[in-house]
Design a protein around this nucleic acid. Structure first.
Lengths: 174, 174
DNA sequence: CCGCTTCCATACGGCACCGTATGGTTACCA
DNA sequence: TGGTAACCATACGGTGCCGTATGGAAGCGG
């Protein structure tokens, strides 16, 4: 779906009919035969985002049985830089009436998953909910830095590993 | 500065000459006498943001001598919901050529301050840098949720206090 | 071969914004 | 008091986008 790529590279405003059609070597006339309007395209992109960026990732991570290793695997999977632009730009566009419900649904789904994970690690339900929200906030901020200011992040692989150790150590401290 | 308010309520794209002039009861002709163009207005808004949203806040927090209480005070000050929209929208617009250097500067300044704080709390310089980045990421994500999805955050005052305790506990765990 | 559906292109009107041109008003000052 | 600078309003052209109207071209069943 080219619309999701456009969200990644130019944000929600980048999902524009005329430039997109031109980039695909087509014309507006063609586009408006396939879609009712721009909103329909955005809606389709959001549905695709929900499948690929939430359900598939969680299903894949959920294969790991050990909760601690599952949390680490989740962080590694989810900070892959290829996902970052779309994630960041969609969260940033969550004031848009079409985007808001999709993002709300994703945040609920993801924080619930994280909450279950922290419960499996031995925290009380309330504490698990708090740590889940904390972890998700850190995830959001990390992605934002990844996209906008990568120079602020640890430079090489070793430093990133140490950084991940720090994060997981803090999140799992009793 | 009305431009900063516009960034808060409608993002960088909300800094538009004609609507802004109309909102102030003026006209474009008046605006273009005071500013060379839209970019000049954006630049002025960014300079003001740097003063009010970084320097003043840090100066105010720095009055607290105890590092642990200073960290808590910093979090409380900085998660005031009145600051959240401008902060979030500016970070979200950091791909813009005028905004990028301003945000980069702010992030550097703030993470450096946080790093000093964690060093004052007894962490090694490297660990302090990691925790500073972690704390700033969590801050960014938290603000984003505050603006876009406030329903995802702890609902009442007691829950927010418990949440803050969890966060500070995790950030300060050895 | 005819007519119908499917798919695509060109052309148009409309909107919101940027920036410029130009004239007008106020006020101060030589 | 006449000139000049500071400030503001109206009007215009340009751009990039949305959505519609309209006319094909290609394929396929009757």
């Amino acid at each position: 779906m080219a619309a999701l790529d456009a969200i990644g590279s130019h944000g929600l405003a980048g999902v524009a009919v005329e430039p997109l059609a031109a980039a695909l070597g087509a014309t507006k006339g063609s586009f408006y035969w396939h879609f009712a309007n721009r909103d329909a395209l955005v809606t389709a992109a959001l549905a695709r985002w929900d499948r690929v960026y939430t359900e598939e990732i969680l299903a894949q991570v959920d294969a790991e049985p050990d909760p601690a290793r599952r949390l680490r695997l989740l962080f590694v999977s989810v900070t892959a830089t290829s996902l970052a632009p779309v994630e960041t730009n969609l969260h940033a566009a969550a004031d848009h009436p079409l985007v808001r419900p999709a993002v709300r649904r994703a945040v609920k789904r993801r924080t619930a998953y994280l909450g279950d994970l922290f419960e499996a690690l031995g925290f009380s339900p309330e504490e698990a909910t708090r740590r889940a929200l904390f972890a998700y906030s850190a995830y959001l901020g990390h992605l934002q830095l990844t996209v906008r200011l990568p120079a602020a992040l640890p430079p090489d692989h070793d430093a990133r590993e140490a950084y991940l150790d720090t994060i997981l150590g803090a999140l799992l401290s009793p």
